[in-house]
C-alpha cells in the first residue's frame, strides 16, 4: 500500500484499479488502529472516517438530539450535519469528515453538546 500513496496523482486509485485484493472492512487495507467510542475500544483502519469506522463496528447512532432522537450518518459527505458527535472532548464534530486516529475519544453527543 505504501507504493500506492506515492502514485503520480498522489492517490492510489490507479493501483486500486489494478489490485485484485478487496480491502473492505476486515480485509486488511490500511494499518489497523484503535479508538474509543463511549469508552469501548474499537478497531479501525488508518484513513477511515470516524463515521465509517463506527458503521463498520456495527454502531449506527452517535448522537441523541434535544428531542431524544438518535442520529447517525445521512449524507456521509459533510453537508447534512447529522453525524455530529463529540470527538476528543469537542462537540459538534462531523464524524463523516473526521479521520479516525489512534487513541481518539469519540463520545455520543447528548442534546446540544
Amino acid at each position: 500500500m505504501a507504493g500506492d500513496s506515492q502514485s503520480p496523482r498522489g492517490e492510489p486509485v490507479g493501483q486500486q484499479a489494478r489490485s485484485r485484493h478487496s480491502s473492505f472492512a476486515g480485509d486488511g487495507g490500511g494499518a489497523s488502529l484503535n479508538f474509543r467510542f463511549e469508552g469501548q475500544v474499537i478497531a479501525a483502519r488508518e484513513g477511515q472516517s470516524v463515521a465509517a469506522a463506527l458503521i463498520a463496528a456495527g454502531i449506527r447512532s452517535w448522537r441523541v438530539n434535544e428531542s431524544g432522537h438518535h442520529k447517525g450518518a445521512l449524507c456521509c459527505i459533510g453537508y447534512c450535519f447529522e453525524c455530529r458527535c463529540r470527538i476528543d472532548g469537542e462537540a459538534d464534530r462531523r464524524a463523516c469528515l473526521t479521520e479516525v486516529r489512534e487513541g481518539m475519544r469519540v463520545e455520543r453527543q447528548i442534546g446540544l453538546g
Partner: peptide
Amino acid sequence: RQGSPALGGKDVAEAAEIRRKHDLLDAFC
C-alpha cells in the same frame, strides 16, 4: 471520489468509469 491512500482497496466502479476518472485526475495532477 478517491479514498484515503492509506486504505487502498479495489475500485468497484465499472472499468470505463474508472478510466474516465483516472484520465481526468492524471491530467489534473
